[in-house]
Design a binder for these strands. Structure first.
Length: 445
RNA sequence: CGGGGUGUGGCGCAGCCUGGUAGCGCGUCGGUUUUGGGUACCGAAGGUCGUCGGUUCGAAUCCGGCCGCCCCGACCA
């Protein structure tokens, strides 16, 4: 993308309403625009990041055999009356009425609807196990939206639902989801720790929340330092291997890690003092096993081996996709701006032409741009006739992981400068080597 | 929902107390400057002062209602 053709309304001054770093930076980098309390437009740069996150979530879900689909944002009220949650959910649910006076609602979640779909089309244990998911906008009419997209009223969420014949099968689905979530966050450059949680209004027995450590997090967290060091890395995972999924769950849940809701001071005290950590975290996902709560209430049953009609065991699993954009920035920024991890960056690299209008510099920059596009790096080329300082400041603000600086001084020596946003380190390379380096970084993306 | 703020060009703010031609900085547009970390200069466009009503010869300014937004708390992905 050429910056001269892009829509990137960056702000030099910080809008007054933004209190935390991610909100300020998203507004300043021209990623979002607030339309009402807790409701945002996603401008091209913000949309691109959101899309990257969505793509990673899809890839990791499908890798585990989970089936993508899409349910509507607007739901009929009668499904919720059937489950009993129409009254229970309270004023957080946005209720609407259509021209025929039919009661509708903007979905805050989809358990009822997915259960309805399942019960009308699935009747045999032979079709199990099954996990369906979608990534769709939700609305919860929060009393006090805040922190930009981290606590909006409208938000994008991945929610998935597993249907299993037995509790043991459903617990495998639970473990499998835990593994997919660990991989998903790790690919985004985040350390997200699973913590035992309260089940809240969704209800259920087994549940973990995933928290990204950040000073601005809404929850107080208590954990064993060891858990923050765990990595899946590139280990091969067979999602149908129950023992492997269970072992990974055990590996991540053995060290103590809890939020203030479930914190147990006595158990915490058993951890050696040098490994005890108290901090704050942002919740970016949650997994639940809730048994037959909805299937029994809504008649989602299958025939088992013996011909008995039994309610299916279910779980639901969510990732806050739009919230992750904020959480990522909270975890990765400095005083100049955002520092995107390579996995989620909106553009792979920036090209700064220090002498736009100069024939040699333009030709070199254009050449680099074409080659990086061809190599799949998806560069952003700053081809504006602007001051160098302004160009660098823009690049620092929007936080692309790599920057190539092209200027007359370097070109006399036949080199350009490749700079890492994360470390600030620069290297002079010939242009071909810079392209090769970045092509390697983004290979397979 | 309780408490505290705030609303003036796209953004950040002053003006309000003490009523009398709506201002500053940034950004934007047109020039000059050719710049190696947000240069400088000249010129220009852009505002029903949140909204409705009241007081007044006259309201951004005083009074009242309503609405929006922000912060703290309770609540929540």
């Amino acid at each position: 993308m050429r910056l001269s053709r892009y829509f990137l309304p960056v702000l030099k001054e910080t809008p007054a309403e933004a209190q935390i770093a991610s909100h300020r930076l998203m507004l300043r980098a021209g990623m979002i625009r607030q339309q009402a309390a807790g409701i945002y437009s996603w401008l091209p740069l913000g949309w691109k990041v959101l899309n990257r996150i969505e793509t990673i979530v899809h890839e990791e879900q499908r890798r585990a055999g989970h089936l993508p689909m899409l349910m509507p944002t607007i739901q009929p009220a009668d499904l919720w009356q059937e489950s009993g949650r129409y009254d229970a959910y309270g004023p957080e649910m946005l209720r609407i009425r259509d021209r025929h006076d039919r009661d509708l609602l903007y979905g805050p979640t989809n358990e009822e609807m997915i259960t309805d779909i399942f019960r009308t089309h699935v009747g045999s244990y032979r079709q199990l196990p099954m996990t369906l998911y979608h990534i769709q906008w939700k609305f919860r009419d929060e009393v006090r939206p805040r922190f930009g997209v981290m606590r909006g009223r409208e938000f994008l969420m991945k929610d998935g639902y597993n249907f299993d014949l037995t509790k043991a099968d459903a617990l495998h689905a639970y473990n499998r989801h835990l593994v997919t979530y660990l991989r998903t966050y790790e690919r985004m450059g985040l350390t997200a720790i699973p913590m035992r949680a309260d089940s809240g209004p969704i209800g259920g027995d087994d549940t973990h929340e995933f928290l990204v450590l950040a000073e601005t997090g809404e929850s107080e967290v208590f954990y064993d330092a060891d858990v923050a060091d765990l990595r899946l890395g590139d280990r091969a995972i067979d999602y149908d291997d129950r023992a492997q999924c269970e072992a990974i769950r055990a590996e991540w849940t053995a060290p103590y890690a809890r939020t203030d809701e479930t914190h147990d001071e006595a158990r915490f005290a058993e951890i050696p003092e040098r490994r005890r950590r108290v901090g704050r975290g942002i919740e970016v996902g949650q997994i639940f096993y809730f048994g037959t709560k909805y299937s029994a209430a809504m008649g989602a049953t299958v025939l088992d081996h013996d011909g008995n009609r039994v309610p299916v065991h279910m779980g639901s699993h969510g990732i806050g996709v739009s919230r992750l954009v904020g959480a990522l920035i909270e975890a990765h920024h400095d005083d100049k701006g955002i520092r995107w991890p390579e996995g989620v960056t909106p553009f792979g690299a920036g090209i700064v032409n220090l002498r736009q209008g100069d024939a040699k510099a333009d030709a070199a920059s254009e050449g680099l741009y074409e080659k990086l596009v061809a190599a799949g790096v998806d560069p952003l080329y700053d081809d504006r006739e602007e001051r160098a300082g302004a160009k660098f400041a823009t690049m620092d603000l929007i936080g692309l992981p790599w920057r190539i600086t092209v200027g007359p001084r370097g070109l006399e020596k036949g080199v350009v400068e490749l700079t890492s946003r994360a470390t600030g380190e620069s290297h002079e390379l010939d242009p071909e080597a810079a392209v090769a380096r970045l092509a390697e970084v983004y290979a397979g993306r």
